[in-house]
Every structure is written in C-alpha cells, then in structure tokens.
Design a binder for these strands. Sequence first.
DNA 1: TTCATATATTCGAATATTAGAATATATGAA
DNA 2: TTCATATATTCTAATATTCGAATATATGAA
Lengths: 113, 113
Amino acid sequence: MKDLISRVEILKVVAHPARVAILDELSKGVKCVSDFQDFLEIRQSNVSQHLSALRHAGLIDYYVDGRLRCYFLKNPFILDLLGIIKKEYEGDLQGPECCPVTKKGKYPGDRKK
Amino acid sequence: MKDLISRVEILKVVAHPARVAILDELSKGVKCVSDFQDFLEIRQSNVSQHLSALRHAGLIDYYVDGRLRCYFLKNPFILDLLGIIKKEYEGDLQGPECCPVTKKGKYPGDRKK
DNA sequence: TTCATATATTCGAATATTAGAATATATGAA
DNA sequence: TTCATATATTCTAATATTCGAATATATGAA
C-alpha cells in the first residue's frame, strides 16, 4: 500500500504537459536543458524547475558535460507510462448490464437499499 | 498532440490517493457510493466530489438502483494505467555511459558548448 | 404524507502549484 | 582575469486543489 502511494506521487509529478513532454523527449535519448527550452516554449527558469521536480521524484538524472547538464531517464515505470499515454484506445469499456436509456440496473453488492 | 494533452488531463484527475483507490475498486466490479465510504476513510461529501471529478473526466459512469448509484469503470486507458501502477519494477533504467562518480560524460547533441 | 437513507452540491478556508522575474553559480573562451 | 553562456534557485503573485460543513434532492419504507 505504501508503494501505491509512491506511485501516486509519481503520477502527480508527471501530470503536467511540459513534464510529460520532457519525459517523452528523454525517452528518445539524452538532452540538455537548452534543448528543452527550444521545443517547449517556456522560460529557462521554468524548464529548470520542471527538471528539478522530475529529478527529486527520482524519474530522471543527469551528468555534466562542460556547461551542459545532460539529462536522462532513470525510472523504468516512466517508459511504461509513456507507452500507454501515447496508446490509442477504441471506444469505452463494456459496462455492466443496465438500461442505457433509463440508466437503471441492479446493485450487485450486499448493502441494504 | 491534442490527444496527449487530454491524457495529461486524465493523469491529473487520477493522481490522488483516494481516486486511485476508487478506480482500483471499480476495476474489480460495480460499487456504490457507501461502499467507497466504508473502505476509504473520508466523508461522504468528499467521496461524491471525487466520483464527480472522475465522472466528468469520462473515466467512470453510473446507473441507478433505488437510492444507490452504482458506479463502474468506463475508460479503457484506466485499466492499463492501474496495471502499471501496481506493477513491480526492479532497479533503474540503464543510463547512458558516464562516470558514476564524477557524473561527467559527453553531450550527444549538436549544440555548441 | 412523513421519515430516514443515499447521494450530490455549494461554499469557504487552508494549502499547493504554477510560472515569471530577478539573482546566483559554474564553466569555457578570450 | 573578464566575459558570455548554461543552468539553478529564490521569491512572489496568481491560480488551482482539497476537504469539511452545511444544505439540497431523491427514493423507499412506514
């Protein structure tokens, strides 16, 4: 259960357009901060803030080359997550039996009505 | 790209402990509001608020049986998401080549240093 | 009809997140 | 050393989220 909570924490960090975009780029290879600045259209300080959040959550890490920080993906959960984020789904799940017009059906549990 | 954004919106809604727990319960079958009240330990109004958020995001729906609202999973993405949320991962991704002590390596891009 | 139960909605205070501006730090080049 | 570039950090205002309290609504039972 403790583990489920930490996964939720990860989801929270990922659930931002810029951060998903950063992670998706990193899934293709190493990138430095200015690379992100180019294709996201946000300020440098904001890029750094997002990278910092992702790093503190243990999702990415970096190494240094001169003045550049080279970021890379670290957490394997993220690859799976990106996979389903980009996956196409056709239609809804088949619901339980109930009338689609009146939206009435039967409660399957043992709670008193 | 529009589609990626809507997935991020879904992640935002899911990224809350109570809501993940609700979705996980629903992945096992139909449940009514009081069922959630029992095993989450939160107020009824708050349960309703979470259910409302999940429903407005198109993740769940419900049908009625007397006074009970019977909720069920609707969005197939959620099943995949729950799958990886509960999956175990061993260790980190293999990073790019770089010295693990000094954290120095080579930037692979074409940006000037 | 009256009552109790199941659920939803509204409101508001506390808290968290976001992104820009300004500033700091580190490094390579000159 | 001086300068410019790459990046991080701090501060702050705007905004969003969270959850409890109170209230509303709908339904079955008596």
